[in-house]
Structures are given as structure tokens and as C-alpha cells.
Amino acid sequence: MDSKTEFPIPSDKERQAINNYLQIEREFMATKGFYKAERNLLHRKHAVATIAKLSQGQVVDAYVAYLAMNYFDRYASSTNPFAVGLGSSVTDTVCFVATCCFMLSAKMRSNQFDLQQFLFEKDLNYQPTRLAAMELSILSGLNWRMLPITPFYFLDHYYPTFSEIGGFKRRSINEI
């Protein structure tokens, strides 16, 4: 009985929502095979490092970094993502793209985003116009779909399953 009160039976609406999420989740994932290509994994490593560094000491929720990686993966799956500018390497560009992903994700999750302060605190030296151009590029690359369906959307739905499998409690899952 306990578990039933902890996990109320989903309403029709909730079930429908989950179904919809399942159907469109794919649209918010990197293309198939993306995680297999050696080069992508390398880029990804750089991006993770960049974003991890940016999230440090930031009073933002953890979802910002997660969202930024989602943007990055999806953008990196698109055509010609890392066109390299004069005097920079692919790695630089990857980091630059990752930074812009982080900025976008921070903007999507909060209302205040101060570019100057951000650049200052993170000791970054990018041209604002260049950043804005890259942001636009990412936005259009993602077709402006900035609120992806992520695994977090399914947590509520799967709590009962988790508890059946391993007796996980909601709290311990949330802690992860």
C-alpha cells in the first residue's frame, strides 16, 4: 500500500503526455551513430570539459550543463558544425561552440544572463558579435527547438519501475 501512495496511478493525461514524449524524444537526440565516431567523441570530450569548467562556481542548476550538452550533441550532429575560422583550430572552435551552448542553455533556464560578467568571471576573451553569430548558428542548427525532451521527463513515470527493480526510493533517485 505504501508504494501506491508514493506513486499514484498516472492520470490519462499523464499517460498521454509520456507517450508523446516517447514519440518525440528522438527529435531531441544526436543523430544515430553520433556517439560511435571517434572524432565526435573527441569533440565531445572537449565540450564536456569546457562546459564543466563553465558550470563551476556558477549558481545555476545542474540542468543548465546538461542542456548545454544536449545542444552541443545535436548541433555537432548537424552539417558542418565546426567550420574553422582564420587562426583557430578545430578544438578551439569546439570549445567556442560549447561555450555558446552553455550561454544559450543558461539563458533558457534563467532570466538574467550578463554576458560581460560571464566573460569576465570565466576569463574568456570572445568577441560579443562572434558569440552572438555562433549562438544564432546553433539556434538555427537546432531548428530553434530549445526545450528538448530529456530523460528527466520520464523520471516520474519510471519511479514505480525503479522501485520494483531495486527497491529504489524516489529520494535516492533524485539525488542521482
Binding site: 567550420a83 582564420l86 553569430a133 544564432l136 538555427s140
Partner: peptide, 14 residues
Amino acid sequence: PGQLNVNESPSWGS
């Protein structure tokens, strides 16, 4: 990758 692209910030698709 690595090829020079004069277009510093590619405006993807626009």
C-alpha cells in the same frame, strides 16, 4: 575539419 573557412562565423542555414 581543419579546412579554412573564410566565413568566420557560419550563419548556419540563414
